[in-house]
Amino acid sequence: MQVSTSSSLHRSSLSLEQIKQLQRASRREEIGRNWYKFSRNPISVMGLLVVVTVILLAAFAPYVAPYPAHAGPFTDFANAKKPPSATYWLGTDQIGRDIFSRILFGMRSSLLMGVVVLSLVVPPGVLLGLLAGYYHNTWIDTLIMRVTDIFLAVPPLVLALAVASVLKPNLWNSMMAVSLMWWPWYTRLVYGLATALRNEYFVIAAEVTGASTAHILFREIFPNTISPILTKMSIDIAWVIIIGSMLSFVGLGVQPPEPSLGTMIADGAKYLPDQWWIAVFPALAIVVIVLGFNLLGDGIRDMFASEEA
């Protein structure tokens, strides 16, 4: 009893600067603790390793790839459809390009797709969710959430295909198409959280002390939605990569000769079963990328889950 009084007395005598310092220290400690929790799970660490490796390989593709020129309009018909060998690790495609090199370059557009789409959809999706949730049961809520429901009425792939099909097929338009269909998932997630958080005492306290709406939305409610948002993002990036590969598989994404995993699989499918490596290795590359992000995502989810427990 005595101890707690003295410590609370002690705390009240701290200066603002000291409090901030303590806050920073505790935040650092929290990050350290989360990392410890994350690193204790070998599967999550493996996911992180896979993701980091993929990112590095894609980033340094021009230096890592054995035949960087093969990522462009290159032909070598003498060496076409060669099976995997010491010269061509994963074989060559129908016009003699090294598949391993093309996979490395293809991963670039996959990763770019995931990153660009998420950075386009998360801010507006989250903002709309915050607004609708905070103004629960008002016309703002009704308007935002009814529009959200409309976009959620059809699986995102179908509408993304439709939008991509009316635009000129290329990587940027396919990103637009997927982004246009992806924000509602974040709106709905944040909406659910915000409707619950708006009744918490700290929000009410901020309201009665006259805090601005922006302060309440971004400084009070938003910080409490970050961990579910991050968890969803880490799992979503894999989905976006899959959908992107599907768009390019049907010819609505990256255009040849630019390599992309989806188009490589689609081209290779024509040479099944005899030249199986043309389709199978890019397919495995997608599986590895998606697996990596999924393991990482699960690790992040568990990390935050145990934090709340």
């Binding site: 894999a238 899959i242 590969s245 599907m246 598989f249 699989i265 499918a269 099944l272 079963p273 199986w276 389709a279 199978v280 397919a283 997608i286 599986v287 998606v290 697996l291 999924n294």
Partner: peptide
């Protein structure tokens, strides 16, 4: 389950064609 979740169905389609259809 993990393999099922991380593999898009069109890749399964291609692998199944190769394995159960051709081979």
């Amino acid at each position: 389950s993990y393999a099922g979740i991380v593999t898009p169905s069109y890749i399964f389609a291609i692998l199944f064609i190769l394995l159960f259809g051709f081979a």
